[in-house]
């Protein structure tokens, strides 16, 4: 049998609330190298919050967050504490995040959007960063857009640039929060295609999405979230054949 793949991310008993509302209630999850996980669930179920806590944009209130065996956050005397600044900087290098609304830097060209973080955060020589960026642009079908500014691009192109920007830092895990939700329907395809290609290259990805067919084709595992907990998880076959009413009802809404 194939050797078990390395665990890249481990979330243990994550908890998070906003103004007394429990948004994440005891979620545990581990992600192995090369895995593609889709997270589905109704709006307001805490999917974004889960990603935001995992990427440390939001502070958890309890639980543990471990990247490649390194603890980023853990509990001490009932409180959640985070690793120190310099360790945190190293831990952050492990992941990238693609936002629903891209969040490109409008005052930077496409090229600069992609190379600036590698150069000024990681100290990659500019020439090398540029070569890396050119490869990525070619791969994502954006070679002719290197000198364009974000406002000159379609939403689909902008989202592909933001994927390139995240990949330029060579993360081990890439998170996506509804990467196609802000796009016109005719533009979702080009972004989904890019993500599929990354999956073929065994990029480890955690994708919050409402694209059921896409999740089904692509994922090794689908997680169904509701009211801050994982209600069901399994292979696409298992989830799509689930006998849980809530899962069937939710998936049913998208299949008409």
């Amino acid at each position: 049998m194939e050797k078990e793949k390395k665990v890249l991310l481990e979330i243990n008993h994550m908890r998070k609330s906003f103004d007394g509302l429990d948004v994440i209630r005891d979620i545990s999850l581990s992600v192995r190298e090369g895995e593609v996980i889709s997270i589905i669930g109704p709006s307001g179920s805490g999917k974004s919050t889960l990603l935001r806590c995992a990427t440390m944009l939001e502070k958890m209130e309890g639980g543990e967050l471990i990247y490649l065996g390194e603890k980023a956050a853990w509990e001490e005397n009932g409180k959640c504490v985070y690793a120190g600044k310099s360790k945190m900087k190293d831990i952050r290098k492990n992941f990238g995040l693609v936002f629903q609304n891209f969040n490109l830097f409008p005052h930077y060209s496409v090229m600069k959007n992609i190379i600036d973080a590698p150069v000024s955060v990681d100290g990659v020589p500019k020439k090398e960063a540029k070569e890396r960026a050119e490869k990525l642009l070619l791969q994502l079908g954006l070679s002719d857009k290197a000198d364009a500014y974000p406002y000159q691009l379609s939403g689909g192109q902008q989202q592909r640039v933001s994927i390139a920007r995240a990949l330029a830092l060579q993360p081990k895990i890439l998170f996506f929060d509804e990467p196609t939700s802000a796009l016109d329907p005719e533009l979702t395809g080009e972004v989904l295609k890019v993500i599929k290609e990354l999956a073929k290259e065994h990029m480890t990805m955690i994708i919050v999405t409402h694209e059921m067919q896409f999740a089904r084709e692509l994922s090794d595992r689908i997680i169904f979230m509701e009211q801050g907990v994982i209600q069901a998880q399994g292979t696409p076959e298992e989830i799509f054949a689930s006998d849980q009413d809530r899962v069937r009802e939710f998936i049913g809404k998208f299949q008409s």
Binding site: L57, K89, F99, N103, V121, R165
Partner: peptide, 12 residues
């Protein structure tokens, strides 16, 4: 806020 968040995730 997204500009700050993008920068933070990128390690700035």
């Amino acid at each position: 806020i997204g500009q700050y968040e993008a920068a933070k995730v990128l390690g700035y």
